[in-house]
Design a protein around this nucleic acid. Structure first.
Lengths: 242, 242
DNA sequence: CGGGACGTTGACGCCCGTCAAGACATGTGG
DNA sequence: CCACATGTCTTGACGGGCGTCAACGTCCCG
């Protein structure tokens, strides 16, 4: 049974919009304002009035929450086809912050125009609905992950998710996985630290599971082992520290 | 800014349904089938076809996911007024399991009838929508919690949430908090173990923050300290082990 | 070339998960 | 009413995973 993340991985923009008829898509594009942001720029700030909804066109964005002491939990990475800032609060306040991980292009929809479109084109409402539902399922999966799985399992799962996303519908076990985000971001996403994440990668490398070297790339050498680690099979055979 | 849990705590059944007009409420009740379950009986099983949506009328239910090795993460407790099994998946499969924590009474709505009602009464759709959105916000809050906060902070936060829920809109700092669920459940909810949760309670007791004794009840003696612990202020003054 | 951002590696300590045993309450049958 | 079984909570002992602090290496950009 695929997780929500895996499900989402197979649903880029085209897939997501194909539930809409051509007219609805045209209307959506029409009321959109284009927004471009360089990496690590802020898009949405938690607590601000939620007057726009954003759709990722290009690049990767992160959604996160902050603790008063400055610590950060990235609750998700968003890819082309994903939406940002879809809230149904009555007070219409963003419930989280978001920023561009890589250089990004967005559609920005003013909320009033979007809600008018909701009434004209029910398919559009259903589209945003399914996004929320997907996010909820993914959030629940990740709760399980954060609470009950070791950092090794989390990192392995992350690598596999990235690999499968890039393989797309082909299902191939690709060799080189591109990791566009910084490891500090990944650590915040996985609920650990950059140091521990790095150590875990090194351990995988030393066990011959992956290959490192080029910045922003990981080579997967041993899929079965990586999958076994992610699944939690493989009883602490070799710790993080050699 | 209140968390989603706190928000939900102030929204029992009446509050939640008051966004509907009388006719919609009547229609909802009309198509509902009553279901009663004793404590620890299963309501929904992850992976089963999602042919019903449930509304909690009385009692407390837990929503959870299981790992293959049997470990469990409770992703939320549901109270009267909350809904269960609202999925917008195209395949219409429950994404989680649920069971009664205490003796429970539910409304059960067959999905087809409910979707017909969605079209007749748009307020009903919006009601279920806002539930999903609430759950998503809560899920994101809890990710932060599980990933970055100590067990002490989590237990303190849980006690405060329960206390505030019982205080309702009064905002009073009530003395005796009823805890209807077993600590094993609470531990699974907080992403820890029953042992550690128990130890944490004992530490609070020894520091004079709470009073224990009667099963299913906790007395809160020192609100400011408990709030400080929950907020993460209070640098490891006295560990769990005396 | 110098400075800053990012990743790597080491050393250290403690939080908390695990195993185990005991305390206490509740239910069940004789 | 008592003996016993069962489920829940408590407490102890122990060890490991991983967070923290610190130093170093590497790459990039002015």
């Amino acid at each position: 049974m695929p997780t929500a993340t895996e499900h989402r991985a197979k649903n880029p923009l085209r897939k997501r919009l194909e539930v809409l008829d051509d007219k609805a898509v045209a209307q959506l594009i029409e009321i959109a304002r284009p927004v471009n942001l360089p990496a690590s720029q802020s898009i949405i700030i938690e607590g601000d009035p939620a007057d726009s909804v954003y759709g990722v066109r290009r690049g990767i964005a992160s959604v996160f929450k902050l603790l008063p002491d400055g610590r950060r939990q990235i609750t998700g990475f968003l890819y082309p086809g994903d939406f940002l800032g879809v809230t149904f609060n009555m007070n219409a306040i963003y419930g989280y912050s978001a920023e561009a991980v890589t250089d990004c292009a967005f559609h920005a929809w003013p909320r009033p125009a979007l809600e008018r479109l909701f009434d004209k084109a029910p398919g559009v409402r259903r589209l945003f609905l399914s996004q929320i539902a997907d996010e909820l399922t993914e959030a629940q999966d990740r709760m399980l992950m954060l609470a009950h799985r070791s950092v090794e399992e989390r990192v392995a799962t992350f690598l596999l998710t990235m690999a499968r996303r890039q393989a797309g519908a082909t299902g191939l076990r690709i060799e080189i996985v591109e990791i566009p985000m910084r490891w500090a971001d990944i650590a915040d996403y996985l609920g650990t630290t950059a140091e521990t994440a790095s150590r875990t990668l090194s351990a995988f490398r030393d066990r011959g599971v992956i290959r490192t070297g080029t910045r922003g790339e990981i080579g997967i050498l041993d899929w079965p082992t990586l999958e076994a680690i992610a699944a939690g099979i493989m009883p602490h055979e070799a710790g993080i520290y050699r």
